[in-house]
Design a protein around this nucleic acid. Structure first.
Length: 381
DNA sequence: AAATAAGACAACCGCTCTGCT
DNA sequence: CAGCAGAGCGGTTGTCTTATT
């Protein structure tokens, strides 16, 4: 079926490129540019197919390619973008100057993916791996998540070790509660009660066709409005967005690729640069940093209004929603004045295995070359 | 020192998308 | 509008290097 492969059996060479071949390709492109890849190898005197030449050029010989180890900032950026874009390596590469999609893909598969797995995070959904959390079923199924869970979390960790699993990073009891409840729900037949959060709010109604609990794990499911609690939101030409939040409902962030591709500026803030999401288990709370980068937690004050101002402090990124719901390794209470407790990462990652991006609440510093607004705008083109 | 395993990354394969005729 | 070819993309494989036994 389909057309013949580009590399037919006409004696075209395959496999690793030699320095001589590289030089031929470089010389030819420097003289003539890269127009038609199919005719290029013949004109350049190469026994390669055009596709092979194109890949060699774009992935290796291009002069603007940055080689060498990925920096921590690049790594963070890849994880953040992957949480939004998924395996869209070319889209991710477009935001990392000098890096190719192939390089990023390889780096993801050989480094980042394994690391996330070791930390009990699903590299696809960027959420805690519920197959590990499901160990709770080894204990008392019926009463497990009706009681205080701190001792049970400890039990689970011990059992995980006994069974040879990588222990989850200091399992957050609330998260276990959420996960086990979710698993329990998922096993049952569709039930109206599934569509209620712990506060009894009905997410099954047409008005709220969004279940923040399900979003925690079924992160790939597109939703219509990632900010369902935002009862009003305005944008202005000065790229300042304000919105009024209904704090009676959890406001769970979610940006999927479709949303990024087609941002609706009547629905979303123009900038998400100084919003910060966090999850403390049951309630996904919503906070932001003020101009002094002090975390503000408006989630439990009625009709909280906040400003998202691009010019406030640029390049402070805080979206990466799915990773945010990861158990904290060393949670440190930050804001105990409200009904929810805010945790910040205490930076417990090791030297060569920085894991700080994988805690209950993570702050990401956006590299200067990554402009969030430009990013969003680019997606609209 | 040799054998084996694991890691890293370049390259290939097959599919889809897009533009041209 | 259909068919074709070029280009791009994501997944997978192959090969080389490094670490371990």
């Amino acid at each position: 079926m389909g057309r013949a492969p580009c590399c037919d059996k006409n004696g075209l060479k395959k496999g690793p490129w030699t320095p001589e071949e590289d030089q031929k390709l470089i010389d030819y492109i420097q003289k003539h540019g890269f127009g038609n890849w199919r005719t290029l190898p013949k004109n350049a005197g190469l026994q390669r197919c055009g596709k092979s030449c194109r890949l060699r050029w774009t992935n290796y010989l291009r002069p603007d390619i940055k080689r060498g180890r990925f920096s921590f900032e690049e790594e963070e950026t890849i994880i953040q973008l992957h949480s939004i874009l998924g395996n869209k390596w070319s889209a991710i590469a477009a935001r990392l100057p000098g890096r190719t999609d192939n390089e990023i893909k390889n780096y993801w598969n050989t480094h980042i993916r394994k690391r996330l797995l070791r930390m009990g995070i699903d590299p696809v959904t960027h959420s805690p791996r519920l197959d590990l959390l499901d160990l709770s079923s080894l204990f008392n199924n019926s009463s497990f998540y009706h009681n205080n869970t701190s001792s049970q979390a400890s039990q689970m960790n011990n059992m995980s070790r006994l069974l040879g699993f990588q222990p989850l990073v200091n399992v957050n009891p609330e998260l276990i509660k959420l996960a086990t409840s979710l698993l329990s729900n998922q096993r049952q037949n569709p039930n109206p009660s599934l569509m209620q959060d712990f506060q009894g709010n009905d997410f099954n109604s047409s008005q709220n066709n969004f279940n923040p609990m399900l979003q925690t794990t079924q992160i790939q499911t597109p939703i219509q409005n990632p900010l369902p609690n935002c009862t009003s939101m305005t944008t202005t030409a000065s790229t300042t967005a304000s919105m009024t939040m209904d704090a009676t409902r959890p406001c769970v962030p979610y940006f999927d690729e479709a949303q990024l591709m087609e941002p609706n500026f009547e629905q979303y803030p123009t900038s998400i640069s100084n919003l910060e999401w966090q999850s403390n288990g049951l309630e996904a709370s919503f906070g932001y940093y003020d101009s002094h980068q002090t975390f503000m937690d408006p989630s439990f004050s009625d009709n909280s209004t906040f400003q998202s101002n691009i010019s406030g402090h640029s390049n402070f990124l805080s979206y990466a929603p799915s990773v945010m719901s990861t158990p904290s390794s060393s949670p440190t209470p930050l804001n105990s004045g409200s009904n929810s407790t805010t945790y910040v990462n205490s930076g417990s990652g090791t030297e060569d295995e920085p894991e700080s991006y994988c805690s209950g609440m993570i702050k990401f510093e956006m590299p200067d070359f990554l402009d969030v607004n430009q990013f969003l705008l680019a997606q609209t083109n």
